[in-house]
């Protein structure tokens, strides 16, 4: 029976009309406000995840926004994705728009190189789909597609990270070339390591 009764009636039972002075309303609401404020600022935060939410998620991000209000799209992406995104920018800036790029594998990004103390990559951009947009309209070919797809036969540039993939080029590349991108045909110059 009650289930068919509109809940509105339950929620909005007619309030008894009583003449109440502004002072009375003010005092009651002052107490309510104080209790509400204490409740809202104390009780949820018994659970530490709410402290994280307030301090790390809401406040910290706002601080970054205030710190870099005029950051460009690429700067914001680099802020979140670190060295990997800077490397993508390097690839984009050093290849023509019609380039077909051999893109390093996850293993290449995670590899270590004796010339570099700390690997500058964090592995956030190891999937092909995650870099397709940033490199568009360039085409991307991955290790597993190498030699199997028609695009892999049209590779114009090889991306090198942690010294890996130098062997994909038809000419010798010096061992000091650690991170960068080189054309398959006639290297005009070997652009050296970008600064992730």
């Amino acid at each position: 029976m009650a289930n068919n009764t509109p809940k509105k009636n339950k929620a909005h039972q007619p309030l008894k009309h009583r003449k109440r002075s502004f002072g009375s309303w003010f005092v009651r609401n002052g107490v309510l406000l104080l209790a509400g404020y204490l409740f809202l600022t104390k009780v949820p935060f018994i659970n530490p995840v709410y402290v994280w939410l307030r301090d790390n998620y809401l406040k910290s991000n706002m601080e970054i926004i205030k710190q870099y209000p005029d950051a460009t799209y690429d700067q914001k992406m680099a802020l979140k994705l670190g060295g990997d995104y800077n490397y993508i920018l390097f690839l984009r800036d050093n290849t023509p728009e019609d380039a077909v790029i051999y893109y390093p594998s996850g293993g290449d990004f995670r590899a270590t190189h004796p010339a570099i103390e700390q690997n500058p990559f964090n592995g956030k951009l190891i999937d092909k789909l995650t870099v397709v947009r940033a490199l568009y309209p360039r085409k991307v070919v991955t290790e597993e597609e190498y030699g199997k797809t028609s695009w892999s036969k049209k590779i114009t540039h090889v991306a090198i990270v942690n010294g890996k993939n130098r062997d994909k080029l038809p000419y010798p590349v010096g061992e000091n070339y650690v991170n960068g991108v080189l054309p398959v045909k006639q290297p005009v110059q070997q652009t050296n390591t970008p600064k992730p």
Binding site: N61, M62, K76
Partner: peptide, 21 residues
């Protein structure tokens, strides 16, 4: 705060970069 964060940062989460966006 949430709206500002959402509008400020471009799409950087893996699932969206590898799909929707």
């Amino acid at each position: 705060h949430n709206f500002a964060k959402c509008m400020y940062f471009p799409t950087y989460d893996r699932d969206s970069m590898a799909g929707f966006d």
